Simulated scan of single mutants.
Amino acid sequence: MKPTAQRDWRVSRPSRRARVAFDQTTVLGGLTVALFAYIVYHFIYPLISKGLLW
């Protein structure tokens, strides 16, 4: 018999406490947006406010 991957990717016992499930894509997207906002606020915005970029 050939070894095959399990095709059922559902969680066997879902947690009842968590109303909103954060998967890996949501976490990585949130971190990306947070990093972008940090870069804009700390590096790009001061340059714009001093008139160095425009």
Score class of each variant (00 low, 15 high):
Met1Phe: 12
Met1Pro: 14
Met1His: 08
Lys2Tyr: 05
Lys2Met: 07
Lys2Ile: 12
Lys2Thr: 14
Pro3Tyr: 13
Thr4Cys: 11
Ala5Thr: 03
Ala5Ile: 06
Ala5His: 03
Ala5Phe: 07
Ala5Pro: 10
Gln6Trp: 02
Gln6Gly: 08
Gln6Cys: 05
Asp8Tyr: 02
Asp8Gln: 08
Trp9Gln: 13
Trp9Asp: 13
Arg10Ile: 03
Arg10Cys: 03
Arg10Tyr: 03
Arg10Leu: 10
Arg10Thr: 08
Arg10Phe: 01
Val11Phe: 01
Ser12Asn: 10
Ser12Val: 13
Arg13Leu: 08
Arg13Met: 05
Arg13Thr: 15
Arg13Phe: 11
Pro14Lys: 00
Pro14Thr: 01
Pro14Trp: 01
Pro14Gln: 00
Pro14Arg: 01
Ser15Met: 02
Ser15Trp: 05
Arg16Asp: 05
Arg16Asn: 12
Arg16Cys: 00
Arg16Pro: 07
Arg17Pro: 03
Arg17Ser: 13
Ala18Pro: 00
Arg19Pro: 10
Arg19Ser: 07
Arg19Trp: 13
Arg19Ala: 14
Arg19Ile: 10
Arg19Lys: 13
Arg19Leu: 10
Arg19Cys: 05
Val20Tyr: 12
Val20Ala: 07
Val20Asn: 12
Ala21Met: 10
Ala21Ser: 12
Ala21Trp: 10
Phe22Tyr: 09
Phe22Thr: 01
Phe22Lys: 03
Phe22Trp: 09
Phe22Cys: 00
Phe22Ser: 07
Phe22Gln: 06
Asp23Ala: 01
Asp23Gly: 09
Asp23Thr: 04
Gln24Asp: 11
Gln24Ala: 14
Gln24Ser: 06
Thr25Pro: 06
Thr25Trp: 08
Thr25Glu: 14
Thr26Asn: 13
Thr26Pro: 02
Val27Trp: 08
Leu28Cys: 07
Gly29Glu: 09
Gly29Arg: 01
Gly29Gln: 05
Gly30Thr: 08
Gly30Lys: 00
Gly30Phe: 01
Gly30Ile: 01
Leu31Tyr: 05
Thr32Gly: 12
Thr32Ala: 15
Thr32Val: 08
Val33Leu: 11
Val33Arg: 03
Val33Glu: 05
Val33Asp: 09
Val33Ile: 14
Ala34Met: 10
Ala34Asn: 07
Ala34Trp: 03
Leu35His: 10
Leu35Phe: 09
Leu35Tyr: 12
Phe36Ser: 14
Ala37Arg: 00
Ala37Phe: 04
Tyr38Phe: 11
Tyr38Leu: 15
Tyr38Cys: 15
Ile39Asp: 08
Ile39Met: 10
Ile39Tyr: 09
Val40Pro: 02
Val40Arg: 08
Val40Asn: 02
Val40Ser: 07
Val40Ile: 07
Tyr41Ser: 15
Tyr41Thr: 15
Tyr41Met: 14
His42Lys: 12
His42Gln: 12
Phe43Gly: 03
Phe43Ser: 08
Phe43His: 04
Ile44Ser: 03
Tyr45Ser: 09
Tyr45Val: 15
Tyr45Glu: 14
Pro46Glu: 00
Pro46Leu: 00
Pro46Val: 04
Leu47Glu: 06
Ile48Glu: 03
Ile48Arg: 02
Ile48Ala: 06
Ser49Ile: 04
Lys50Thr: 09
Lys50Leu: 11
Gly51Gln: 00
Gly51Leu: 00
Gly51Phe: 03
Gly51Ser: 03
Leu52Glu: 10
Leu52Ser: 06
Leu52Arg: 01
Leu53Met: 06
Leu53Glu: 01
Leu53Val: 11
Trp54Glu: 11
Trp54Leu: 09
